[in-house]
Design a protein around this nucleic acid. Structure first.
Lengths: 225, 225
DNA sequence: ACCCAGCTACCTATTAATGGGTATTCGCGG
DNA sequence: CCGCGAATACCCATTAATAGGTAGCTGGGT
């Protein structure tokens, strides 16, 4: 995990911030462009309509700041963020999205986002936050901060099976789910009724903070590397 | 993964094997009956002339072995086999068919068939194979075994998305499944209706030879290492 | 002796997922 | 121009899965 402290070494910018906008909605890019270039604080040096294109431009332009849409077809914003951060540029990346899902927020911050703003924000607020980000601060709205705190407190991301307090049987059933099996097949495998399997699945989903057996399967498969 | 060894725990039957014959050809049923009841090894406890009737009898009689014709009107033998296997009976099911198509053989074995024999076999061979099956062995003829090996080499287990002929959209949806998402979430993500997502899921499951989104998720996650 | 956690099984209700079908639109190649 | 595959969006029916409840039974601690 990255342990960077917030960058406060960046002065309030006497030269305009060179900005790259990555979003698959042309209209939104235009709106940002107009909003942001009103004052002399920002200069949009590039626009990309996809993650792939965005990555190319980011590398070519080395902008001071990147506005990145989370929800894009083909390539997820988080993936783009990870790639950019893996390059070690010192572009600041601000996620700009419609999603206020705690999971998305947490994922973005874990991946190294320097800000996470919602498209539904008032333009003035949005612009103010962008300037904060330009000044090197990590920017979140009040509401998102609350969401984040809650999410961290509730422990959003699953822990290890034992760490999560899974019982032996629940572990066995999780293993079976990670093999792609249905409740009926698991029941047969473990010599219990499928009703009982359902109970265990319900319990382990709750313990692991997951919402479906598919999530459980994905998590279990990825966990075991 | 289950590591069952072939059932050899079933003794060569001191009592006759209770047999159910499901085939829509009356003549063939009669032939089987005569062939099989000559010795004391088998007792035909039921005959069915359709899949539906076969299912009823299978449930009612819980026979030791079921001879199942693959090519039947109305209800395909594979379907019948799947239903029977989904019940978790421990009846052994031997497919008995004229089809030596690799696809049928593979489908039958994937669906849990305990044997796959051809009607064109010599009666003595057929009878011998049935006794093998009764003893808990999975029975295939030499030729079918070769066919199977070839078939497995050629396809059977899922290939790469492109290799399997997945379309772009199907690939995107598979990716989403591999993130643990539901059809509704995927629909929102890709800006299509959830009905459409279902169609794509159905198609990609078929193309990849998988039986549920959970299997698809597991496979996709493991594939990408 | 009692309580509690875990496992088992069943109940009801609702939603998600699967599998089949039809149909429309679009672009591509014969 | 026609056919075809892909994508879209519905229809239908059935099964699987989720979510809540009750409840018996067991084995270990207190």
């Amino acid at each position: 995990m990255k342990t960077d402290i917030p960058r406060q070494d960046i002065p309030p910018a006497d030269t305009p911030q060179r900005l790259l906008v990555i979003d698959d909605h042309p209209l939104f890019r235009k709106a940002i462009l107009q909003l942001v270039e009103m004052t002399g604080d920002f200069e949009v040096v590039g626009e990309a309509s996809s993650g792939r294109e965005g990555l190319e431009l980011a590398q070519a332009l080395q902008p001071d700041m990147i506005l990145l849409d989370l929800n894009m077809k083909e390539m997820n914003g988080i993936e783009v963020l990870k790639v950019i951060k893996s390059w070690g540029l010192d572009s600041r990346v601000v996620m700009l999205t419609v999603s206020d899902a705690a999971a998305d927020l947490v994922a973005a911050l874990r991946a190294g986002a320097d800000g996470y703003l919602l498209k539904e924000m008032e333009p003035e607020d949005l612009f103010a936050k962008l300037k904060d980000a330009a000044a090197g601060q990590v920017t979140l709205t009040q509401r998102l901060t609350r969401l984040l705190a809650y999410s961290l407190r509730e422990d959003s991301k699953p822990k290890d099976p034992e760490q999560a307090g899974l019982t032996e049987q629940e572990c066995r059933i999780l293993d079976q789910i990670a093999l792609g099996k249905s409740n009926k097949l698991i029941a047969r495998e473990l010599n219990i009724s499928d009703g009982t399997v359902k109970v265990h699945v319900k319990h382990l989903l709750r313990k692991l903070n997951l919402r479906s057996r598919v999530e459980a399967a994905v998590w279990a498969v990825e966990k075991k590397r």
